[in-house]
Each structure stands twice: as C-alpha cells, then as structure tokens.
C-alpha cells in the first residue's frame, strides 16, 4: 500500500514552524523593548566554537521607535527580529552573514543625503529627518527570498518608491531607475579592502525598469520591527522589491536617478551569467550554484526545524507583478 505524505516543501507557511509567539504582534512588541532581542542574539551568535578569543566592543547602533500605519493581520510566521538583524548580506561590512552586525555598529547615518535626480523636472534631496517625515510611514509584511535559497518574513516600515519618484516629476525619457549605495570606505571596511568586500565593485549599484519602480509593491524602507533600520539592514533607507531576489534590494541608498538606458547592476557586473538584471524569483530557472525550486524559510528553531518549502514564481507576488513580464522570456531575462 502506498501511503502519501506531504513533502517538507509542500507544507504551507503556517505549518512550517509552530511558534505561536511570532503570530502575536502585541507579544512581539512587548518582547522587543527598545533595542530588541537583536543584541542578545548577536552576542550568542558569536558564541561560535572558533570565537574563544574575540572580544568585540559593545557599541550598538542606535535605533528609535517609529510611528506608522500597522499592517493588517497576516498568517505568516515572521522571522524573529534577532535573526533578521544578524543574518545579513551587506558586503560593505564583510561577506559573512554575521559580519555586518559586528562591523556596522559604528555606522554614522545622520546627516544623510538622498538625491532624486536624472530625467526629472523637479530633482530634490532628502535629508536624514526627511526620510521619516516627508512620506506617510506604513508597515508591510513581505517575504524576502535570497538567491542563496533561504528566505525570511519581515515586517518592514516605509513608503512606496512610486511616491518618491512622482514627487520629482519624471519626464518621458525616464525608462529606468538607477540606485547607488553610499561610498565611504572609511566607514565601510568592505569598500576599503577587496578581501573583506568580496571582490564587488563599489559603490554597489542596482536598477529597476520604470514600471517595476512604480509598482505599488516596491518599497523604500526606513525601518523594521517597529523601529528605524539597524545599520546592518541598510540604514537609514533601503529598497525592498519582494518579488525579486534579495540582492536587488539595495541598502543605504544615497542616489535614485531616473535614466533612459538600462543601468549597470553590481552582481551582474561581477558574474553576468549568474545574476541577471531582472532577478525575479523563479523556481524554474536555477542559479548555477543553487536550485531555486525550493528554499529554507528562516524562522525560529535550530537544526531540526523542518523549514524547506516550495519557492513560488515571483515569490508569491505574481498577481501583482506578473503582467509586467507577460511578453518576456524569463528564462533568458533571468
């Protein structure tokens, strides 16, 4: 007799980790305190068998609470804040996932300048305080799918990129949007050393087609878990494009420029055959290094967490975005 059982990756999100704690917003908020559990885990995370002698300074990047329109109830299990803030690909602060939380605590983001320029009639610049006051802040629970086949669910706070762009009144030549991360090798050790920075050309640059940029899902985030962004997550402002692999969601942005031609993008420059311009989450197109058919959802739980789930086209956001690509061969435009 054949007994049919569900494969691990066929489990729905709710079944993956039975940790009701992460369902209950109020409890999460209560637990969060001001600095959150992030610093706690950051310390235990470095309790690595190789780290007997490391003695890191206790400097902590300051975060403050934000007021924002909370997201509606969602059934998704959030990735614990402590994990969201200690598992980062932010090569400007080192290539290991735990490097940014260790190396970015002294990152100075105030003053900040974000310029919106290029093919627009009204270019303008946002200062540090403007980032939190010029646009209405809202919370959005998004899945983040990394090209390395892991994923998280994160409560971001921010505003639509579309609002920011509209304010600058783009002209008809604005076909693409080019983004740039801060270039400051003094503050960002990965930019100062090829070894630490993983051989990426800095500053990090990314780009979107104008329709992708104007899609209501595309978020400029200034916070997560109720507070301003930690340095390691791309403070003070970063992009979040939930239907694309994480590397498109550029961090610590200083420039948003509307342009006529498709702009260069960092990972595509490094390895064009592995990372395309579009980088839409697509279970049918494997990366040479990782199968993209399934992913490990990082929630709570140690080694035994059964967290492998199927990857959805466009990371499950197809309803809102698939139309933009309907005449394109996504196997070629990966």
């Amino acid at each position: 007799m054949l007994i049919k059982t569900k494969k691990n990756y066929q489990l729905s999100e709710n079944e993956v980790t039975a940790e009701p704690v992460y369902h209950d917003r109020r409890q999460v908020l209560k637990k969060m305190g001001y600095l959150g559990a992030g610093t706690l885990l950051a310390q235990s995370a470095s309790a690595n068998p190789l780290d007997f002698f490391s003695n890191k300074p206790d400097k902590v990047f300051a975060q403050r609470a934000l007021s924002f329109q909370p997201a509606g109830e969602s059934s998704q299990i959030w990735t614990p804040e402590a994990k969201v803030t200690t598992h980062n690909n932010f090569y400007e602060f080192g290539t290991n996932k735990s490097d940014p939380v260790e190396n970015a605590q002294g990152f100075n983001v105030n003053p900040w300048q974000l310029s919106i320029s290029g093919e627009v009639d009204k270019p303008y610049t946002l200062g540090y305080d403007d980032l939190f006051t010029r646009f209405d802040l809202e919370e959005r629970i998004y899945r983040l799918r990394c090209v390395e086949a892991w994923s998280m669910v994160i409560p971001w706070i921010g505003f639509s990129l579309a609002e920011v762009i509209k304010k600058a009144a783009p002209n008809s030549r604005a076909k693409y949007v080019a983004f740039e991360t801060l270039y400051d090798p003094k503050q960002m050790p990965g930019q100062a050393s090829r070894r630490l920075g993983g051989g990426v050309q800095y500053p990090y640059v990314e780009g979107l087609r104008i329709d992708e940029a104007m899609n209501p899902l595309t978020l400029l985030s200034v916070g997560l878990y109720g507070k301003t962004l930690p340095a390691q997550n791309g403070a003070p402002i970063r992009l979040v494009v939930p239907w694309k692999y994480g590397f498109k969601s550029i961090k610590s942005i200083v420039s948003i420029k509307l342009v006529e031609k498709k702009p260069p993008t960092s990972w595509n420059i490094l390895a064009a055959n592995e990372y395309g311009f579009y980088a839409n989450v697509n279970p049918e197109v494997d990366h040479p290094r990782w199968s993209q058919a399934s992913e490990r959802r990082i929630t709570s739980g140690g080694l035994f967490a059964r967290n492998r789930i199927a990857t959805l086209p466009f990371n499950g956001y197809g309803e809102d975005v698939a139309d933009m690509y309907k005449n394109m061969d996504l196997k070629v435009n990966y």
Partner: peptide, 21 residues
C-alpha cells in the same frame, strides 16, 4: 557545534553554520 546548533544558538541559520564549520 551541534549542541549550539540544535539549540538555535548559532546565528540565524544554524544549518549553514554547521555545513561551513
């Protein structure tokens, strides 16, 4: 390594950590 990893005390993704180590 395994004690910490089972207990979820090895960073956000103990699986990667264990494979790496």
């Amino acid at each position: 390594l395994y004690l910490l990893a089972f207990d979820d005390q090895l960073g956000a993704d103990p699986v990667k950590e264990v494979i790496h180590f």
